[in-house]
Design a binder for these strands. Sequence first.
RNA 1: GGUCCCAUCGUCUAGCCCGGCCUAGGACACCAGGUUUUCAUCCUGGCGACAGGGGUUCAAAUCCCCUUGGGAUCACCA
Length: 513
Amino acid sequence: MDRRAAHAYPLRRRRSVARGSSVSKPVRVRFAPSPTGKLHIGGARTALFNWAYARRHGGAFVLRIEDTDPERSTKEFERAILEGLAWLGIGWDEGPDIGGPRGPYRQSEKYPQYREIARRLIASGHAYPCFCTTERLDALRAEQESRKERQVYDRLCAGLDPALAARRVAQGEAAVIRFRVPPGETVCIDHIRGDVRFSHEEVDDWVMVRSDGSPTYNFCVVCDDVDMGITHVFRGEEHLVNTPKQVLLYQALGQPMPEFGHLPLMLGTDGKKLSKRTGDTALQDYRDKGFPREAVVNFLCLQGWALDGTSVLFSVDQLVANFDIKDVQKAGAIFDPEKFRWMAGEYLRQESLETLADHCAPFVVAEGLCSADELARPRAWFLEVVKTEQARIQTYGELPPRIAYLFQRDDAVVWAAEAVATARKHANAAQTLRDYREWLAPRVGGGIDAAALRDASKAWAQERGLKLPAFFQPVRLALCGVVNGADLFDVMALLGAPAVLARLEYGAARLAS
RNA sequence: GGUCCCAUCGUCUAGCCCGGCCUAGGACACCAGGUUUUCAUCCUGGCGACAGGGGUUCAAAUCCCCUUGGGAUCACCA
């Protein structure tokens, strides 16, 4: 069938240009996640950039839930996504939970509206019912595949008599509704990429409404962006090829076009779209590991955007004050977990002891080292614990295993094989422990002053002709059971004199046996 | 494979739009020193890139073209 003859509308070849309205309206941007999984860090970055753009321009940031896939959408994921955004500090002005003037903000609550728009589109000739079965479509695709042709709908139903088609629909025959793509080409204006040109030959007569009456993504997106008065659509690059379909729909609807910007993809270390295969992709994963929130925000910003090329560490306020969609990088960014961890450490080290203690406490409790109450009562003690480890950890989650020794019984400190081997390298390790304990006991009755004890202990070791490692390594084994860790005398202060003396004694015995 | 997008150190990027200030800057990682009882932090230094080829120009990382390479996408999923 002649392709052109299949079109009832419009027959004139034309070029449509998706240029945004030149009149400046108040900015309205949106983040429209699908609640079919946890919030992806790529999605989080998209949200962040949209939010920053809205804040920068005094506009509104709208949150919309695209739950038109009933198979995979769940309320749990929706809640998780909202929580994730809130955790990042991204606040929305309108959304499913708080409502707003242009709701509903959940697509599943708008089906009647979509249906009405589809009906109007059929009436105006911009869309048509299609009765082709899945089997026929599959066969068609297989055939096109075998001939190495483009896999597009052959528009069998595009030429059907509208009245006849309407009767078949009325009689209950299963049908999808397809958009009738006119000949011509579309130029999409993208603020990140410039003009992107698509020939309509490449755009399929795509399905707007499924045979069960539910609307599809490309259809809902445009309806909603129109309903919600969205002025700027910033989303991931994977949506770039959808844009001509959507642009055509705006035009069919006679609605003003938003301005587009397609963000570069976040890639895994394999250079492909970030997926679970190459590492953690959910925002939640990083929160659970104890990455400081500010570090996550900062790092996400750096995937495709830079403050000035020199500053690496910056605040959300600086982001908001300086963010411009035009400055966003075009090329995809490989996600570097190593740098992410470094940045986490940078933020963690900037925190006050009080803040750091608050952030770490839940991780210590979750690890089962002690109860929240036990941690809260000796608050000063826990602040000291946190102080000794602050330079040594990059995330809150790294603290518990490092301080586990503090919560072990004095006669049952867990000894790592490596630490035992290191201590045993020194000939008289057990004896050193006994001697040191004997020397130490009368000196720590009034508590432990780490600084003073450090000097005195080193002097003691030197007097006995002990090399420092021969002294420190057995002691560290006895007190902590590991080879590396915080300053030994800080550790003693944390442990307290009774525990220190007890551990030295048990340590000597264990080492001797 | 078709269509579309992209291309500066291993990685994130500045510079590119509005050619000269670029002997290409910063950061992570890496390497070497320093501080230190270990680890970590911290300090100093080093290594390291304009994918290739044509053009335009007095001058190109910056503009144009081609090649190569990478990616995205081709559903009654979003």
